[in-house]
């Protein structure tokens, strides 16, 4: 086993590397869950009443969800 492989194995065993990535994944998932819930709420509110502010908030939330999903996907891909 090469030294690099040995270091990688040791890190895996000790869980030194993955811990940060895992916690980032967890935080992102939690954030996405909240954003999706908020998006649903805004959509319901917009059905009842049209509002510029709400529409802007919906645009922001939608953009953030898209962004978050992309980051999460990249995190899973790098594993």
């Amino acid at each position: 086993m090469g030294i690099k492989k040995f270091i990688k194995r040791a890190k895996e065993i000790l869980g030194l590397e993955d811990e940060k990535k895992e916690s980032k994944k967890k935080s992102l998932k939690r954030l996405l869950k909240k954003l999706i819930k908020r998006k649903r709420e805004i959509c319901t509110m917009l059905k009842d009443k049209k509002s510029k502010e709400l529409q802007e908030e919906l645009d922001i939330v939608s953009l953030q969800i898209k962004k978050g999903k992309k980051i999460l996907h990249e995190l899973y891909k790098s594993n």
Partner: peptide, 22 residues
């Protein structure tokens, strides 16, 4: 905010996208 660490901070392009939509 932890948004910077998560990479979720809004960039200039994101803001332009929102304003263009508007």
């Amino acid at each position: 905010g932890d948004v910077e660490n998560l990479g979720m901070a809004m960039s200039k392009e994101d803001i332009d996208l929102i304003l263009d939509k508007k």
